[in-house]
Amino acid sequence: MTARDEILGRVRKGVGKGDFAQRKIDAQAWLTARTRGPQPALAGDLLERFRNKAESLSSTVEAVADRGAVPAAVARYLAAQNLGTEVVMTPDVAALNWIAHGVRGTARAAADADRVGVTACFCAVAETGTLMLLSAPDSPATVSLLPETHIALVDASRVVATMEDAFALLRAERGEIPRAINFVSGPSRTGDIEQTIVLGAHGPCRVHLILIGTSS
């Protein structure tokens, strides 16, 4: 064994690269043993908190009673914003009755020319007014990132209090972390130029939320 081999061997041993399976077990054990740090006490109704925080971040919100009312709500928003009737959507929302309400939706990944993207979300965080979206074959990330307008469907039953609760729900329901997790807190923005906030700098300039399961 050369001096180089000996040094690299000690480095590998020190970082545990010799046994991937054991490193994975150790990492899972560490995560399981972790306790949550201090969290704010959220007073009042979670849905009201989520809506207020989302609107403070320049999102717009419409509440509907059930998923059947979603296509009509999307059609109203498109008409009010003069956005036409064509949208690209994630396959997981394509089964809704879009045609009956004049919305022409295509279920696929988004392209640069698409103006409006419609997605579901895994859950939403009341503390910050944030959406949690997971990448998957039926929920391509481009639909929420490329179009200038992002319309997101948010089930009221999937609004959790904190980011920690969102990750706990992910671990409980999915087990493994997906390839990508995207957090959406209102339209894309930047303040790089003279500290002036500009929306839509590197993503959607409009985010509209359809809150499902409440009519208030």
Rank of each mutant, 00 (worst) to 15 (best):
N52R: 15
I25Y: 09
T60H: 08
S56W: 05
A27M: 07
R49H: 07
V61H: 00
W30N: 13
A27W: 10
A33N: 14
A72S: 09
V70I: 04
G14F: 15
A69D: 05
V74C: 04
G16P: 15
V74T: 01
L47I: 06
N52I: 06
G37H: 07
S56I: 01
E48A: 09
R36W: 14
A27R: 08
A75Y: 06
V74A: 03
G18F: 06
R51L: 03
R76M: 14
L78K: 00
R76G: 12
K17L: 15
R12V: 09
K53R: 12
W30V: 10
A33L: 11
A29C: 05
D19E: 14
F50A: 02
V64Y: 01
V11Y: 11
D26A: 12
L78Q: 01
A41F: 09
F20L: 12
A73I: 10
R12L: 13
V15Y: 10
L42R: 05
R76F: 12
R23A: 11
A27C: 06
V11W: 13
V74E: 03
K24V: 12
G18H: 07
A73P: 09
K53C: 04
L42Y: 05
I25T: 13
K17W: 15
V15A: 09
A33G: 12
D19Q: 12
E48N: 07
A33D: 14
N52W: 05
G18R: 04
R23G: 11
V74R: 06
K53P: 00
D26M: 09
R49C: 01
L46P: 03
R12A: 14
E55Y: 02
W30R: 15
T32F: 10
L47P: 00
A65M: 01
A41K: 14
A27F: 11
V15R: 04
P40V: 00
T35H: 15
P40E: 04
P38N: 13
A75N: 05
R23F: 06
A29L: 08
Q28G: 04
K24S: 09
R36G: 15
L42F: 03
G37D: 08
G16Y: 14
A41S: 15
D26H: 09
K17P: 08
R12H: 13
S56D: 11
E55A: 02
A69H: 08
A33S: 15
L78D: 00
R67F: 11
Y77Q: 12
G9M: 02
A73N: 08
Y77F: 12
L42V: 06
T60D: 11
K24F: 11
A72L: 05
A73Y: 05
R34A: 15
I25M: 13
